[in-house]
Simulated assay, not measured.
Amino acid sequence: MKKIFLATLACVSILACSKSDNDTYNQYIPDQAFDTTSTINTSFPQFNSLKYPGNHVVVQEYGINGIVVYYSGSTYLAFELSDPNHHLQSCSKLTVEGVIASCNCDDGNTYDILTGQPNSGTSAQFGLKQYHTEVSGNIIRVYNN
């Protein structure tokens, strides 16, 4: 009886730690460690618009297909520019216009860069992959590690 109890307890413990319980797991977007360190500096002309609420900048050198950094007025948000609902392919690289990130694949998925969530009318299951941000003076650090 004791062996059955211990075996059951072990199975429950293993299942409780299963990766499938992780709501943020996305098979289409692999984890890629990066850190912008001091690259995004609002003193630089290409990032100056991030001093003002409602602006965004696309930075191609980081993430998988680049990242978009948006300033809401109170916080900086950063998202991956790969459609989280497709395997990586040329059409799944997102383009940003205003606050909308659009996929160029046939389904035409669109996402709000304020929330990272799919827009209404989009059949997407996953929202955009969000990255961590920290601000120190004029430096905006975006990282995933």
Results as ranks from 00 to 15, higher is better:
Ala7Tyr: 06
Ala7Gly: 04
Ala7Glu: 11
Thr8Ser: 14
Ala10Arg: 03
Val12Ile: 15
Val12Glu: 12
Ile14Tyr: 15
Leu15Gly: 04
Ala16Phe: 09
Lys19Gly: 08
Lys19Val: 15
Ser20Glu: 13
Thr24Trp: 12
Thr24Pro: 01
Thr24Phe: 14
Asn26Lys: 04
Tyr28Thr: 00
Asp31Arg: 13
Phe34Tyr: 05
Asp35Tyr: 05
Asp35Pro: 02
Thr36Val: 11
Thr36Lys: 02
Thr37Gln: 09
Ser38Val: 11
Ser43Glu: 11
Ser43Lys: 13
Phe44Arg: 08
Gln46His: 11
Phe47Ala: 04
Asn48Tyr: 14
Tyr52Arg: 14
Gly54Asp: 10
His56Cys: 08
Val59Trp: 06
Gln60Cys: 03
Glu61Leu: 14
Gly63Met: 02
Gly63Ile: 00
Gly63Pro: 00
Ile64Glu: 09
Ile64Lys: 13
Asn65Lys: 10
Asn65Phe: 09
Tyr70Ile: 05
Tyr70Arg: 00
Ser74Arg: 11
Tyr76Phe: 12
Ala78His: 06
Glu80Phe: 01
Glu80Ser: 09
Glu80Met: 09
Leu81Tyr: 04
Asn85Trp: 02
Asn85Thr: 06
His86Glu: 12
His87Trp: 06
Leu88His: 06
Leu94His: 08
Thr95Gly: 12
Thr95Cys: 02
Thr95Arg: 02
Val96Arg: 05
Gly98Asp: 12
Val99Gly: 00
Val99Ile: 10
Ile100Thr: 15
Ile100Tyr: 01
Ile100Asn: 05
Ala101Trp: 00
Ser102Tyr: 04
Asn104Cys: 02
Asn104Pro: 00
Cys105Leu: 07
Asp106Ser: 13
Gly108Ser: 12
Gly108Tyr: 09
Asn109Trp: 12
Ile113Trp: 03
Leu114Ala: 09
Gln117Glu: 15
Ala124Lys: 03
Gln125Asn: 10
Gln130Phe: 00
Tyr131His: 15
His132Ile: 02
Asn138Trp: 05
Asn138Ile: 09
Asn138Phe: 13
Asn144Trp: 01
Asn145Tyr: 09
